[in-house]
């Protein structure tokens, strides 16, 4: 699993914004991660703690929001969310078409940081 390299990238972005804003301490990091990612919250925090030791982000809490997997129907052009458990049987809820395509659910997005 690649938690470590993903967390390293997150930390770099956080530290860059902290430095350019003259931040003393980062207390929280707001993240939005697509449900198709297999990263586990607990391990992300664990690795973040490990990597951020001795930086202004040491001890920051990750506030992770999971964004839904969204498909788009090619027949009627509607977007609709799908639960991972339903991926095997997915069809358009509006028109029933099976001609659908994945449009969201794999993003890694840093929303904001809470700082003092």
């Amino acid at each position: 699993m690649h938690e470590l390299s993903v967390m390293d990238s997150i930390l770099k972005v956080v530290l860059r914004h902290a430095a350019s804003n003259g931040v003393e301490k980062v207390v929280a990091v707001g993240l939005r991660i697509g449900k198709l990612s297999d990263l586990v919250d607990e391990w992300m925090q664990h690795y973040f703690d490990y990597l951020s030791k001795g930086t202004v982000a040491e001890g920051a809490v990750l506030k992770i929001e999971r964004s839904p997997v969204i498909f788009k129907c090619k027949a009627c052009e509607r977007d609709f969310p799908v639960e991972m458990a339903e991926i095997r049987t997915v069809a358009c809820p509006a028109c029933g078409s099976g001609d659908i395509t994945l449009i969201a659910g794999r993003e890694y997005y840093i929303k904001n940081i809470e700082v003092v």
């Binding site: 990238s9 914004h17 890694y108 929303k111 700082v115």
Partner: peptide, 13 residues
């Protein structure tokens, strides 16, 4: 000290 919120809005990768 008060906690401030800084918008980041960046894709990690």
């Amino acid at each position: 000290a008060d906690i401030r919120l800084i918008e980041v809005k960046e894709e990690i990768l």
